[in-house]
Amino acid sequence: MRKKVYLSLIILPLLVCLVMGGGAAYMLSYSIESSTHSYAYRWKKLQEEYPSMRQWLDSIRQSHALRDTTIKLRNGLRAHAFYLKGDSACGRTAICIHGYKDNALGMLYLAHIYNKVMRMNVLLPDLHGHGKSEGKAIQMGWNDRKDIEQWIPIAERMFRDSHHPSRIVLHGVSMGAATTMNVSGDKGVPSYVKAYIEDCGYTSVRDEFADQLKAQFGIPEFPLLPITSQLCQMKYGWNFYEASSLRQIAHCHRPMLFIHGDNDTYVPSWMVHPLYKAKPQPKELWITKDSEHAKSYKDYPEQYTAKVKAFVSKYFN
């Protein structure tokens, strides 16, 4: 009997560890190691979702106005981006940052605002492990901020105008919004980055994953999320608890426009309120009625365009 008790005291903890370890490995694979969307998929979805934009999309494709560029990152990997030159840019550039499992082409609806309507230059980076950018796992906007910080001076040099000062806005959606907010709180961002726009970004990776664990699987945060976070730290050098847009924007004193749909359940609508509160002035907030995740532009294209144009123009003059 005593031997059985001893065996159970050894075996049961081992079984628990195996189950938790297997669960953490699955969660990591499911959340940041799964495949991302192809360019063909994204181009088709753009045509379907934004029929009014088809003529412009076809024109930039046929005229080869949408061009490619690549850089080598400090980590040794190659990063890719598309770009469009504006015909009256006068040193004005938008860097548009895509969301989770998307790619640079997914931001062409934003490029339409900046390039077609506002006549600006546009850079559309593929984040780590998306599109043509190298990388084994999604970085959820955390280490992505370092990649974007390498793209910023490259964009400034690419589009420099000897007659006008360089002015850049960062505009991100979902994970791209988290990336944008994470950049905004870092020291050393060049002064020619004049403004930020975040559309439906999350407070932190921990908050987002905890919410989705409950929503998709009915699983509480503890103990699976901390274990998975530690596994991510071991494999990729970052963890879910350090990746906080909420902490980053508390250090941002440049203008930021917050956009969020009030019917967003993927990145819950409540997240925008602590983010907005944490951000020092100047700042603006626009909540779109009945919009689901990343659908504010689709639901309100004219208002979205006008809001972006007014906000950016205010700080580019």
Rank of each mutant, 00 (worst) to 15 (best):
M118L: 12
I113F: 08
T93S: 05
Y41G: 02
M53C: 02
I97Y: 07
H64M: 08
N121D: 14
C96N: 10
H112A: 11
Y83R: 00
I97E: 08
N115T: 12
S52G: 09
A94Y: 02
W56K: 03
I113R: 08
M53W: 04
L77S: 13
K116H: 00
P51H: 03
Y100E: 00
A81E: 01
G106K: 03
Q47C: 14
S88C: 09
G135R: 13
N75H: 03
K132D: 06
T93P: 08
I97V: 10
A65F: 02
G76Y: 13
D87G: 00
D126A: 14
L57G: 02
R61P: 00
L66D: 05
G86I: 03
D102G: 13
H112C: 10
K132F: 05
G129A: 14
Y109S: 15
L46F: 13
G129L: 13
K132T: 03
M120D: 15
N115P: 11
Y100L: 00
E48K: 15
Q55G: 07
W43E: 11
K136S: 15
A79K: 07
G106Y: 07
D68K: 05
A111D: 14
K45P: 10
A89E: 07
Y50P: 11
F82V: 00
I71P: 12
T69E: 08
H128M: 09
K44S: 15
W56A: 06
I97T: 08
H128N: 12
I95M: 05
D68L: 04
Y114K: 10
G129P: 13
G76A: 13
A89N: 06
G131S: 07
D58N: 04
A65D: 06
M53L: 04
N75S: 04
L127Y: 11
R42M: 09
I71M: 14
K72P: 09
H98W: 10
